[in-house]
Amino acid sequence: MRIEQGNWIEQIAHQPIWVQVAVYTLTVLTIGRLDHLLGSDIVLSLFYLIPIAWAAWCSPQPVALYTTLLSFLVIFLVAEYSSGFVYTETISSLWRSVTELGFFLVTSTLITKLRKTQDRLRWLSSMDELTHAINVRVFTEKLAQKIERSRRYARPFAIAYLDLDNFKQVNDQGGHLEGDRILKLVSQVVRDSIRKTDLLARLGGDEFALLLPETDLSAAKTAISRIQTQLAITMQAEQSPITVSIGVVVCTQPPSSQTMLIHYADQLMYQVKHRGKNAAQFAMYPDANAPRHNSE
């Protein structure tokens, strides 16, 4: 079972489905057992909302539905056979059961919708609205986490600073709508060319950044080459003058700060610009203060 830092209540969301089902089942049965032992003197109906709300907030909808139906079944059995309730009319028992089931289902549904809304708002707050790359704030947070992880586990990673060449020409000739379309297209091509563990961020304007975990110099060159190739193919098909200048820093030791690292990659990118654009330049950190490897 994987344990992570954070709110312990929400840690169940990171566990396998069978673990989630087992935990919710145990919780419901525990409440049912207490309900049975306390009898009709103390009504625990509302306590069944604890596992229902927990599952609706933290788990997939089928698991939440299972927990809701299990809670209803347990409370029904306790009420009918253990707590001492006696219904003189069948309709009374039926009405109470239908009311409780409806209440449980509505509660579960509302909490699930609330969670999805919160997830959507969190996603929107972390993304660049135009390109659907992550924004600068999230990128710096993720980079800081990666630096800390590198400090603890001594694992290599790389960042890349990408700047589109000839983007002003596209804006001047095609207008801002065409510029926006190209930005979205570039973002899509890059995201399709990287691993799921890699992160693409839009830093602003026509500038992007990449965070490549578990990446040494050889892997970084392979990843950047793949991006260059796919962008070249796409822009040729679009008959667009867009190319990309890239500065890449591969870290074998943690840098002093994420700001310094981004600035270093930015410097490498500008060296490519000054040499004629449409290339990538690589440097190791902390092996040198200037780029030692370059790829045209």
Score class of each variant (00 low, 15 high):
167 F>E: 05
164 L>S: 06
83 S>I: 00
111 I>F: 01
84 G>K: 09
180 D>R: 12
119 D>Q: 15
240 S>V: 03
103 F>G: 14
235 M>V: 04
23 V>N: 11
277 K>T: 10
148 E>G: 01
60 P>E: 04
220 A>C: 05
21 V>M: 06
115 R>T: 10
200 L>D: 01
208 F>P: 00
205 G>S: 04
197 T>R: 07
284 M>Y: 04
50 I>P: 02
156 P>T: 06
168 K>L: 12
51 P>S: 04
263 H>S: 12
163 D>P: 07
258 Q>E: 15
185 L>I: 00
272 V>K: 11
163 D>G: 14
251 C>I: 03
61 Q>P: 01
245 S>N: 13
117 T>R: 09
224 I>Q: 12
27 T>W: 06
83 S>C: 05
122 R>L: 10
62 P>V: 05
252 T>D: 15
12 I>W: 13
163 D>A: 10
189 V>I: 15
90 T>V: 14
264 Y>Q: 14
235 M>K: 04
204 G>Y: 00
267 Q>S: 11
9 I>A: 14
241 P>G: 05
227 I>S: 13
36 H>F: 08
10 E>D: 13
244 V>K: 11
66 Y>D: 01
217 L>S: 12
107 T>H: 06
213 P>I: 03
95 W>I: 07
271 Q>T: 06
213 P>Q: 08
131 T>A: 11
172 D>R: 11
93 S>P: 01
241 P>Y: 09
59 S>D: 09
181 R>C: 03
227 I>D: 02
250 V>K: 05
86 V>Q: 06
207 E>G: 00
282 F>W: 08
131 T>H: 10
134 I>A: 00
182 I>S: 07
295 S>F: 01
9 I>H: 11
279 A>E: 07
255 P>H: 08
284 M>P: 00
273 K>E: 09
116 K>F: 05
283 A>W: 04
94 L>W: 15
284 M>S: 06
185 L>R: 11
269 M>D: 07
30 T>Y: 01
296 E>M: 04
67 T>C: 06
122 R>M: 07
216 D>I: 12
76 F>D: 03
191 R>Q: 14
19 V>A: 13
45 S>T: 14
275 R>Q: 13
251 C>Y: 09
29 L>P: 00
246 I>G: 02
48 Y>E: 03
113 K>W: 07
218 S>D: 15
166 N>K: 12
189 V>N: 13
130 L>W: 08
246 I>V: 14
253 Q>C: 05
27 T>R: 00
162 L>N: 00
199 L>A: 00
229 T>A: 14
192 D>C: 04
93 S>A: 12
221 K>H: 09
58 C>K: 10
249 V>W: 06
185 L>P: 02
61 Q>C: 00
145 Q>C: 12
179 G>E: 08
262 I>L: 15
260 M>D: 15
39 G>M: 03
264 Y>D: 14
221 K>C: 10
206 D>P: 01
159 I>E: 08
25 T>M: 14
183 L>K: 06
289 N>Y: 10
130 L>P: 00
254 P>N: 09
77 L>P: 01
73 L>T: 11
47 F>R: 00
82 S>F: 05
278 N>I: 00
246 I>S: 05
